[in-house]
C-alpha cells in the first residue's frame, strides 16, 4: 500500500496532465493539479525547516567541526522568520503588506540577501574563466576545433573582429569574423542544440511512460 497509493496518484495526475494539453475544457484540471502540488510543497516546507533547525542545533550542542557556521545559519533563519512572521517594523503593522518598503523583512532582503546572492552569482565570472582555460586547451582535434570556434565567436563579438576583417569585399562578407561568429552560432551550434533537445524530449517521453506505467519506482523507495 505504501507504494501503490502514490503510484495510483501519480498515474492519475500524470494522465490528467497529458489529457489537459489536448482537451481545452480540461485545461483547468491540469492547472488545479499543479496547484495541489504547490499546496503539498508548502506543507512539506515545515519538514525542511524542522530538519535544518535539528541538524544545526545538534552541531552547535555537540560543538562539531564548523559549529560556528551553524550558529550563523540558525541566527539567519530565526531573524528572517521572526521579522517576516510578525512583520516587525512594517509601516502598516501586522495587517500590512510585507513587501512594502521600510519593513525590516524587506530591508534584510534588500541589504543582506540580495548582495549575498549577487556575490555568489558574480563568482561565476571567475569560474567561467578557469573552466574555459581548461576546456580550450588544444589537446586533440575536437578540442582544437572548439578552441578555434570559441576564438572566432569571442573575436566576432568585439570591435576588433570588425576592424580586422571589414576590408573583405561584400561578395565574401561571410568570411568577415562577425558574420562567421553568427554563422557558427546559427548553424552548427543551433543544429547541435536542437539534436540535444530532440533527444531530451524523447527521453522525457520514455521516462514519463515508465513512471505512468509504474515500471520506474526507485524514487518511491522501491525496486525499479
Amino acid at each position: 500500500m505504501k507504494h501503490q497509493i502514490p503510484m495510483l496518484i501519480l498515474s492519475a495526475v500524470g494522465t490528467l496532465l497529458v489529457v489537459s494539453v489536448f482537451v481545452p475544457s480540461a485545461q483547468h484540471w491540469g492547472e488545479d493539479a499543479t496547484l495541489y502540488f504547490d499546496i503539498i510543497a508548502v506543507f512539506a516546507f515545515f519538514l525542511g525547516g524542522g530538519n535544518l533547525i535539528r541538524v544545526h542545533t545538534e552541531k552547535v550542542s555537540h560543538k562539531s567541526a564548523g559549529w560556528i557556521y551553524s550558529v550563523v545559519t540558525l541566527l539567519g533563519f530565526g531573524i528572517m522568520l521572526v521579522t517576516g512572521l510578525f512583520k516587525i517594523g512594517n509601516p502598516n503593522g501586522i495587517a500590512g503588506d510585507l513587501s512594502k518598503s521600510g519593513s525590516y523583512f524587506q530591508l534584510l532582503f534588500q541589504y543582506v540577501m540580495s548582495p549575498l546572492n549577487s556575490t555568489m552569482y558574480a563568482l561565476l565570472a571567475f569560474y567561467v574563466a578557469s573552466a574555459s582555460y581548461r576546456a580550450f586547451r588544444a589537446k586533440n582535434t575536437e578540442a582544437t576545433i572548439l578552441l578555434v570556434a570559441a576564438f572566432v565567436i569571442l573575436l566576432g563579438r568585439t570591435a576588433l573582429g570588425v576592424l580586422l576583417t571589414n576590408w573583405i569585399p561584400a561578395q565574401l562578407s561571410v568570411l568577415q569574423i562577425p558574420n562567421l561568429a553568427i554563422w557558427i552560432m546559427n548553424a552548427p551550434n543551433l543544429a547541435g542544440q536542437r539534436a540535444i533537445m530532440i533527444g531530451i524530449s524523447l527521453g522525457v517521453i520514455s521516462m514519463s511512460l515508465r513512471l505512468l506505467l509504474g515500471i520506474e519506482r526507485t524514487y518511491l523507495g522501491g525496486d525499479s
Binding site: 533537445m197 533527444g199 531530451i200 524523447l202 527521453g203 520514455s206 521516462m207 515508465r210 520506474e216 526507485t218
Partner: peptide
C-alpha cells in the same frame, strides 16, 4: 540530455526499462 533519463534503465538492466 537523454542519457540522464536512460540512466535508471541502464543501471537496473531490467528488460522492461531497457525496452522503453
Amino acid at each position: 540530455g537523454e542519457e540522464l533519463f536512460a540512466a535508471s534503465a541502464y543501471l537496473s538492466g531490467e528488460p522492461r526499462q531497457l525496452g522503453s
